[in-house]
Simulated assay, not measured.
Amino acid sequence: MTRPLTSVERSVKGRNDWLQEEECKAIESRGEMGRMEFWLRVTRSRISKDVKAGRGDVIPGFTQVCRLFKLALDKRAEGDARLWNHLMQYAEQVLQQHDPRH
Rank of each mutant, 00 (worst) to 15 (best):
R35Q: 07
S45F: 06
T43I: 07
K13P: 00
K49P: 00
G56Q: 13
K52L: 13
C24T: 10
H86N: 11
F38C: 02
T63G: 12
V58K: 03
S7K: 15
M36G: 05
T43M: 06
K49S: 14
M88T: 15
Q89G: 07
E23I: 05
V65C: 14
D74C: 07
E37N: 05
L73S: 05
A72R: 06
L68T: 14
M36I: 12
T6Q: 02
K70E: 08
Q20M: 08
E21L: 05
L87S: 10
N85F: 01
K13R: 12
R15P: 00
S7V: 07
I47Q: 11
Q64C: 09
L87R: 08
G31Q: 03
D74R: 11
V51W: 09
P60W: 04
G14V: 03
D57F: 14
R55W: 06
K52R: 14
A72F: 01
Q20D: 09
Q20H: 04
K25S: 05
V42Y: 08
S11V: 03
R82F: 03
N85W: 04
E21W: 04
K49G: 08
V58F: 01
E32D: 08
M88C: 06
R41F: 06
L19K: 09
T43N: 07
G14E: 12
K25F: 02
Q20V: 05
E22L: 03
A81G: 01
V12A: 10
A26K: 03
R76V: 03
A53I: 09
R15V: 08
D80W: 04
N16M: 09
A77R: 11
L19P: 00
R46Q: 12
W84Y: 14
W84K: 12
E23S: 13
E37F: 03
R67L: 13
R67Y: 06
G79K: 02
K25G: 03
E9G: 00
L73M: 11
Q89T: 12
M33L: 11
E78A: 06
G34D: 01
K52W: 08
M36V: 12
K70R: 14
K49T: 14
V12M: 09
V42N: 05
V8I: 15
E22I: 02
M33R: 13
C24K: 11
R76L: 04
V65D: 14
K70T: 12
